[in-house]
Design a protein around this nucleic acid. Structure first.
Length: 496
RNA sequence: GGCGCUGUGGCCGAGUGGCUUAGGCACAGGUUUGCAAAACCUGGUACGCGGGUUCGAUUCCCGCCGGCGCCUCCA
């Protein structure tokens, strides 16, 4: 089965072929760790996860790497993201929102980075993001690869792709790399004509070309700094990905590179320039796959609009008013096509919870009927072949789900075969292996069970008023009640 | 201004030059039920606007209008 993917590099659909048969080397741009990752980040990360799992369904062995950006790069106004995080951390520590002992010293950027790295990994694992379980071997931190970055910068200088400017800053010379602009369409001419008044500040005059970008900046005052041949300072933002991709994947040319669409320019354009400039290879990644942005209730997510949600805001109910099971958030974030704008809504989350519940019930029933003994199936199975065909068409998840969901409802005469099919489907969707870790510690769980007993007892007396009262209390507590034929009552926590 | 994506029924969201032309949610009717819920069965409505190509277009082409992203830190 041939996998079609939309390649941002060529702006067209292409048939995927790996460089080495049966093996895929894939890199995803990961999170910055100055704050909790938000649902938009996870939409992009989970798209990478879906791609990886799809490749695995097609029997590729996937070596997937994702970085953690823990260097606080300078931003406009000379504020370092790590210093900002430190200030936030101090406030949060005072108000008790950061657990005791989690961050001893808010002025230590490594502690802050560790804190948010752990939070990210925790959220990512809850969401079934496979690579989060491969930390640290496939999830490198930028600060652990400073030496490699310096090596690549040296090589770029040797090969005349980079230079040290009057102010001591090392810049990449975009004019030395004719292909600059190939990915984003922002060629040098276009950049110049569209630049307007944005690039005419003091720093620009020291560059040979306004689009030249920083590789190393000597700066004694930066919160994170390292010794280097160009003075004590810190690396540019783009160099880390070029370095970690080649170091961890062991190749100058990799198969797939993923990220959010906003990274196309300048980040990925610059990665290509650096990697190809240093290696001399024709290309860096052969397929560039980008996910579209996530909207919230029809609007761009932004802090000022109050619709800016982290994954944990959604889990704990701060986003929608009720707690959300991680599997539901995962489903919600992967259920629409990665190259379409996705609209995150409370309604969508409720829809998703219904589907997730159906999947969980379905799997539980089959596991019970078969004792967990699945038959052998492969992609030639009618359901799987349709499912795989849909995914092979540029990850058409909607069509794939349209194959699976109605199938769940059908009569399953051969539960062992159905279980095997389901396991293959779920190896891509990753829904039912997310277990309910959060519900175990629910303080009102015992109370709710107590109401359930009351309800059952009242029903046996046909005391409908008492039964209804107990039922209402359970529902108000955020649980669902199901009657069973023999007079029993089954209580489940609402998924969203 | 430049580059790219996009506009489908009440909502979300696939797809196709003509063939009973997804799926989900919601809604309506039904089965079930003490009443509900859940579950199951049944049902309806669509292709932004204007041209063109064609025997025939929601699907191809052109124009227009609208939405979104990037061009500056950002998944």
């Amino acid at each position: 089965m041939s996998l079609q993917l939309y390649n941002s590099l060529t702006n067209q659909m292409e048939t995927f072929e790996s460089l080495e048969p049966g093996v895929v080397r894939m890199y995803s741009c990961g999170p910055t760790v100055y704050d909790f990752a938000h649902i938009g980040n996870f939409r992009s990360f989970l798209f990478g996860d879906l791609l990886r799992r799809t490749l695995e369904l097609f029997d590729y062995q996937v070596h997937h790497v994702m970085n953690i950006t823990d260097v606080g790069h300078m931003v406009e106004g000379e504020t370092d993201k790590m210093s900002e995080a430190a200030n936030r951390m101090k406030v949060n520590k005072k108000s008790g929102r950061v657990p005791e002992g989690a961050v001893e010293d808010p002025n230590d950027p490594y502690q802050i980075a560790d804190y948010y790295t752990n939070a990210f990994l925790e959220d990512a694992r809850k969401l079934g993001y496979k690579i989060a379980s491969e930390y640290p071997e496939n999830v490198p931190k930028a600060t652990d690869h400073i030496e490699g970055m310096q090596g690549m910068i040296k090589r770029l200088i040797e090969r005349d792709h980079a230079y040290v400017a009057e102010d001591g800053v090392v810049y990449f010379s975009v004019e030395s790399f004719p292909k600059y602009g190939e990915l984003s369409g922002n060629t040098l001419e276009k950049l110049q004509s569209g630049a307007g008044g944005r690039v005419s500040d003091e720093n620009q005059s020291r560059k040979r070309h306004p689009a030249d970008f920083m590789l190393w900046k000597p700066d004694q005052h930066h919160v994170m700094k390292w010794d280097s041949p160009w003075g004590v300072g810190y690396p540019g933002w783009h160099i880390e990905c070029s370095v970690m991709a080649s170091e961890l994947l062991g190749r100058d040319v990799i198969d797939i590179h993923t990220g959010g669409e906003d990274l196309i320019f300048p980040h990925h354009e610059c990665e290509i320039a650096q990697s190809c400039g240093a290696s001399g290879a024709e290309s860096f990644a052969r397929y560039w796959i980008h996910a579209r942005f996530l909207m919230v209730e029809g609007e761009k997510m932004s802090k000022s609009k109050g619709n800016f949600f982290t994954a944990r805001d959604v889990f704990n109910g701060d986003a929608t008013g009720s707690e959300v099971h991680p599997a539901v958030l995962r489903y919600e974030l992967i259920k629409s096509h990665y190259r379409a704008n996705m609209n995150f809504t409370k309604k969508g989350l409720e829809d998703s919870s219904g589907v997730v519940k159906r999947m969980l019930d379905f799997e539980a029933r089959l596991e019970q009927e078969t004792g967990g003994q699945a038959a052998e199936v492969d992609l030639s199975h009618p359901v799987l072949s349709k499912f795989a065909a849909a995914l092979s068409s540029d990850l058409n998840i909607s069509e794939a789900l349209a194959v699976v969901i109605p199938w769940l409802r059908q009569e399953h005469r051969d539960p062992r075969e159905s279980l095997a099919v389901w396991r293959a489907v779920n190896s891509v969707l990753g829904i039912t292996d997310i277990t309910e870790e959060s519900a175990g510690g629910d303080p009102i769980f015992d109370q709710v069970q107590q109401w359930g007993e009351e309800m059952k007892e009242a029903r046996s007396r046909k005391d409908w008023d008492a039964s209804d009262a107990a039922r209402q209390k359970i529902i108000d507590a955020g649980y669902e009640v199901q009657m069973v034929k023999d007079g029993g009552v089954v209580i489940t926590k609402s998924l969203a």
